[in-house]
Amino acid sequence: MNAQPLSLPQATYLVAEREVVTRVRSKAFVISTLILLIGIIAGIIAMNFFSERETTTEVAAPDTVSAQLAEIDGVEVTEVADADEARQLVEDEAVDAAVVPDEDSTTGLTIVALTEAPSELLQSLSQAPQVELVNPDAGWSPIRYILAIAFGLVFMMSAMTFGSPVATSVVEEKQTRVIEILLTAIPARALLAGKVIGNTLLALAQIILIVAAVAVSLIVTDQTEMLAGLGAPLLWFALFFVAGFLLIATMFAATGALVSRQEDISQTIAPVMYIVMIPYFLVIFFNDNPLVMAIMSYVPFSAPVSMPIRLFFNEAQWWEPILSIVISLIACALVIMLAA
């Protein structure tokens, strides 16, 4: 009696299950994941340790104000003749900020800074004075830069770690003629889709572990305010990661289907590697450029990094992430049809 042929969903599930089980049983995969998690936890603890060390804020102030600042710990005062000279030192970046008298201010003082008022200085004063920024638009945002590096690095490393084995597996099965046996039982689309879905689930599981490690580390180091601020961006990143990685893994599968020998695979996957790496560097270099970030939010390869950053800073409308995800899923479906 002939066995009932497998349906497309059943065949896809079996292939995905085989991919997951094979990778989870690999000692190299388990050890590398543990090293990554330990590195993240150690990095957050180290950052918290160094941030708590005392720092000195250099402040320029006229003699009428310097006496008030001299008693504040962590503030080094440079006396100047008047407010104009103090502002000039700020513009020359000779000091971190200037504190000048201001009759219109409720506190009688104004902090003059180049791009951002030093938080230590604001916290040291009994009442927060008025803040005047000399050039607020020219500032370099460390938060944007850190988010760009963190999201970009995680996406790029995950794409290379879990994407390239998809291409390698396809070529290996073609070279050993196993693919001929498999295609007699399951459709080509089910084989490719199963490989893509299985590796996507593994990559998503690693992302969830990374998010959990970050959350636990921030709670242990009593950085709950930072955790509350990063909660939404991390969730958006995880969602966009799935859509972006599906497309990357599908492209790796397509490149693997182009060749029949392991020796040729490095040349075929090189363009996909560039597609993964180039958006990472673009987001880092242009993270403070609104136009470039907006464009990259709709490019499937860079959207997992650029869109969560824009959402974190409230620079995107509510419909933009939905449209971006739809574009990524459509592109993934088209590529997997072409690969099959």
Rank of each mutant, 00 (worst) to 15 (best):
Q175I: 09
P136A: 11
E315F: 09
V242R: 12
I309D: 04
I40F: 02
R144W: 04
E225L: 12
T55Q: 12
S266I: 06
V75E: 10
T33S: 13
Y13F: 15
M273I: 12
W236K: 01
M277V: 14
T250W: 07
Q123T: 00
A193D: 01
G43H: 08
D82C: 05
M277K: 00
F49H: 13
S119A: 13
E225D: 15
L239G: 14
T200L: 08
P5Q: 00
E76N: 03
Q206A: 01
L36W: 07
I143F: 05
R261V: 10
I41L: 14
I330Y: 03
V20H: 06
V259Q: 05
G194L: 07
R87Q: 14
V220I: 15
L258H: 05
V20K: 05
S141L: 07
E79I: 10
A113L: 00
W319T: 10
A340Q: 09
M160L: 15
I35C: 09
N287Y: 07
P5T: 00
Q10L: 02
A188R: 15
G231M: 07
G229Y: 03
A238L: 14
P62V: 07
G39E: 06
V326Y: 03
A188Q: 13
L258D: 03
R144M: 04
K195E: 08
F240P: 10
T110L: 07
G194F: 04
F237N: 00
I322K: 03
V272Y: 10
I143S: 09
S297W: 06
A228G: 14
L182Y: 06
M307I: 08
L34F: 15
A205Y: 04
I269V: 15
V95D: 06
F245S: 01
Y274M: 15
P300F: 07
E71P: 08
M307W: 02
L147E: 11
L8Y: 12
T176W: 06
V216L: 06
I327T: 09
A333G: 13
A159R: 01
V326F: 09
M337S: 14
S260F: 08
P233D: 01
G244H: 08
